[in-house]
Amino acid sequence: MIQIKDLHKSYHMGSNSLHVLKGINFDVKQGELVSIMGSSGSGKSTLLNILGMLDEADEGQYILDNVPIKNLNEKIAAKYRNQFLGFIFQSFNLINYKSALDNVSMPLYYKGVKRKERTEKAMHYLEKVGLADWSHHLPSELSGGQKQRVAIARALASDPKVLLADEPTGALDTKTSYEVMELIQGINDDGKTILVVTHEPDIAQMTKRIVNLKDGLIIDDSPVQQVRASLHV
């Protein structure tokens, strides 16, 4: 599903430049649930953003579902983001003036789905994350855990090939975190490929494989015995 080879990324600030990714290699297969770990500033988000085509690598190869991602024009990039990728952010990134339902329908709007079908689908995914009764609430009327569920429903709405979650539990308390992980595990059980960035070992233990990042390089990449979140809830 994902193949990256020798990925490099530097940030330039004035005359300084910060080499954040120094040659990353790894593959993710269909249906995997991978966590990317590392201390703060190790480049986890940078890597995920490149995978999500929100940012571009300076060097290296990235193939997503057999499509090389390189020098894409905006139009194609937008289409891939819409159809291949679903994002879940630490800060939820919901549009604050739109209801839960409208937030979830947004990717479908950009996919060109008609209004009626959009609403039906969005409602289906809200049900799936257990928020059917909250569909007409604004994000400000939802708890952190509920917001993240809406964000997950939104990421799922356009039925992408890969879900990318950057510290999805970073802003949540432990109990809520486990509930969210339970949801993510369930989605993975249905066959969706998911990458989760986290620096919390207990969250990482709930995935099936941990990739450890340090100083811009992968220092460890090994499968783990998945802990089911449902046992902790």
């Binding site: 929100l54 937008a78 289409k79 983001r81 994002f87 990717p107 950009y110 996919k111 939104r154």
Partner: peptide, 10 residues
């Protein structure tokens, strides 16, 4: 930014 991440064209 959010809209673009969800697939909006510029």
């Amino acid at each position: 930014g959010i809209r673009k991440a969800l697939g909006a064209l510029p």
